[in-house]
Computed example of a mutant assay.
Amino acid sequence: MRRAPRKIPQRRRIFLGCEGESERSYGVLLGRLVETRHRRVHVDAVVLQPGGGDPLALVELAARQARRRADLGEDYAFKAVLLDGDTTGRTPERDVKVAGTAERNGLLLIWQIPCHEALILRHLDGCAALRPTSSARALEELQRRWPGYRKALPAVELAARLDEEAVLRAAATESALASLLTALEFGRD
């Protein structure tokens, strides 16, 4: 008598819109960290190009990309976008539309204040509360504490310094990141 083939459960897909390659590498790192614990979710880290520098354009592009990718397969269980906070204020009339556009499209906004390097800095031991005042200061401080860091560092190199504990450390001070981790079932077996 033949056994029925074992059905492998479908992973929940998580969309993570990324302003650039640095954010995409971070999304890939999160996906790999989760995969070492369980295989219930898949992180689809997507670089949003063109669109950098304008938060509304990035959110609109993230919404379009998520819809387009969902049309090719299963819909996303959760959608988020990483945005640099230092890009706000250039066009205030567009800035006020960002939150509403994200909400209408089911996107969680993860603001990196002031930029991605500041978010990465908050992962390092003793740095969770650091809030550099500019992107230049954030990169300078990150490179001082992590001499080998450079923009667009591949996920495998991020993993040499950022582990599950580091991600949880940053999430303790970044509520939107904590929400993403909840959707990823981060830290759960």
Rank of each mutant, 00 (worst) to 15 (best):
E23T: 10
E23K: 04
R24W: 05
R24M: 00
R24N: 02
S25M: 04
S25D: 03
Y26P: 04
Y26W: 09
V28F: 12
L29M: 09
L29V: 11
L29S: 08
L30G: 07
L30M: 07
G31N: 12
G31Q: 06
L33R: 15
L33V: 15
L33G: 09
V34S: 06
V34E: 01
E35F: 08
E35P: 02
T36N: 10
T36A: 13
T36H: 04
T36F: 00
T36I: 03
R37W: 04
R37Y: 06
R37C: 15
R37D: 15
H38M: 08
H38Q: 11
R40H: 05
V41L: 00
V41H: 09
V43W: 01
D44H: 14
D44T: 14
D44A: 13
D44S: 14
D44N: 14
D44L: 04
A45T: 13
A45S: 12
A45V: 03
A45Q: 10
A45C: 07
V47G: 07
V47M: 11
V47N: 11
Q49V: 06
P50Y: 07
P50M: 10
P50L: 10
G51I: 02
G51C: 03
G51S: 06
G53F: 05
G53V: 01
G53H: 02
G53W: 09
D54K: 09
D54M: 09
P55A: 06
P55H: 06
P55S: 12
L56W: 01
A57Q: 15
A57G: 11
V59H: 08
V59A: 13
V59N: 09
L61A: 11
A62F: 12
A62M: 11
A63T: 10
A63D: 07
R64D: 15
Q65T: 02
Q65K: 06
Q65D: 03
Q65E: 12
A66C: 10
A66K: 04
R67G: 06
R67H: 04
R67I: 03
R67V: 06
R67W: 00
R68D: 15
R69M: 13
R69W: 05
A70C: 00
D71S: 11
D71E: 06
D71L: 08
D71P: 01
L72K: 13
L72Q: 12
L72C: 10
L72R: 12
G73Y: 06
E74Y: 09
E74T: 15
D75F: 00
Y76N: 05
Y76L: 02
A77T: 08
A77S: 14
A77I: 05
F78D: 02
F78L: 07
F78P: 01
K79E: 05
K79R: 14
A80P: 03
A80C: 08
A80H: 03
A80N: 05
V81F: 13
V81P: 03
L82V: 07
L83C: 07
L83T: 13
L83V: 15
D84Q: 01
D84S: 00
D84V: 03
D84T: 03
D86V: 15
T88K: 14
G89Q: 05
G89C: 02
R90D: 08
R90N: 12
T91V: 15
P92I: 13
E93P: 08
R94G: 00
R94L: 04
R94V: 00
R94W: 03
D95S: 06
D95A: 03
V96G: 02
A99Q: 14
A99G: 11
A99E: 15
A99C: 14
